[in-house]
């Protein structure tokens, strides 16, 4: 019998362990969301800081000014709605592409043995250690009109004039898949590597072919890794700014780019806050889906 008392109990001296990271996260991770929400209800002014106060206390009267105009503005201007939809679409499609490419890779690494496995794993992780910006930059050089692909295609006589790839949605997809692929492969790998090969042998023994083995054994058992990996791609991509900015054209509308523009170019902090709040609400379900898997994984219950 393994006694249940192997975990320490609070209180004790263990709250010393909990307090520093807990306070830090409360202050610098959770509290800021409240402030974003607060400012999304303010109005933009030309001042320092560039938003109105939410409440005033003058002559013993507390005046609360909540402005919903920012949210109404998001509703009326179709630009925002289109940007949300297009972000979700791009994120969903690129997650799917990552999954289709990443699953066989993760599976292959999980099945490799010994030093080969560590080598393959490192080769997948290595690119994500180099600068993300640099990797996007590399694609700029490849996809340009006078870039490598077009030069080769024209030299071979396949096309007469350069194919436009830069500043298209295709370029955005390439950039996203390129940068986010390792984030999907890693959790999937660590899930697949735990798969007991005897289960597959048992399935073979019971008459299952390779396809049915995959669909009925491997895939259902790796669902946790699939969800974690997909969410690790999907959620950040919805708010992605750098890739659509550098590789995408004006027709690629993404909400991260819109938020950046509202904040840095229009200096409209309240609208930017409203955009962020809505984005957060939209992402709440994917985030909690990710949390459920990741938390169990980290806490290591059972």
């Amino acid at each position: 019998m393994k006694p249940a008392g192997r975990r320490w109990r609070l209180p004790g001296q263990h709250w010393l362990l909990v307090i520093p990271p807990y306070l830090w996260l409360l202050l610098f991770f959770l509290a800021p969301f409240a402030i974003v929400f607060k400012i999304s209800l303010a109005e933009s002014t030309i001042a320092q800081p560039p938003y109105t106060a939410l409440y005033e206390y003058v002559n013993d009267v507390l005046t609360l000014r909540l402005s919903f105009s920012n949210y109404l503005f998001l509703l009326t201007d179709s630009l925002y709605f289109d940007a949300y939809v297009s972000s979700l679409r791009i994120a969903a499609i690129s997650t799917l592409i990552c999954l289709v490419i990443g699953y066989p890779i993760a599976y292959g690494i999980a099945r490799a043995q010994g030093p080969m496995q560590s080598l393959l794993l490192m080769l997948v992780v290595l690119p994500s250690w180099t600068s993300f910006l640099i990797r996007i930059y590399a694609w700029m050089g490849i996809l340009r009109n006078n870039g490598i692909i077009n030069t080769v295609l024209m030299a071979l006589g396949v096309v007469d004039e350069p194919v436009r790839m830069m500043n298209t949605e295709l370029a955005v997809y390439i950039g996203i898949v390129y940068t986010y692929l390792p984030f999907l492969v890693l959790p999937l790998y660590s899930n697949l590597v735990k798969l007991d090969n005897r289960l597959l042998e048992a399935a073979t023994d019971l008459g299952a072919g390779p396809v049915s083995r995959f669909l009925r054994i491997t895939l259902p058992l790796s669902m946790g890794g699939v969800i974690a990996g997909c969410m690790l791609v999907f959620i950040p991509v919805v708010g992605e700014f750098v890739i659509p900015e550098l590789l995408g054209g004006s027709e690629t509308l993404m909400i991260g780019k819109v938020l950046w523009g509202e904040f840095f170019n229009n200096r409209d902090w309240p609208v930017a806050s409203a955009v962020a709040t809505v984005m957060l609400v939209v992402l709440l379900i994917p985030i909690s889906l990710f949390h459920r898997y990741q938390f169990r994984e980290m806490e290591g219950e059972d």
Partner: peptide, 13 residues
Amino acid sequence: GMVTAPLVMPDVI
């Protein structure tokens, strides 16, 4: 939640 959410939170937010 506060430990896992930053892993996926979009940078702009």
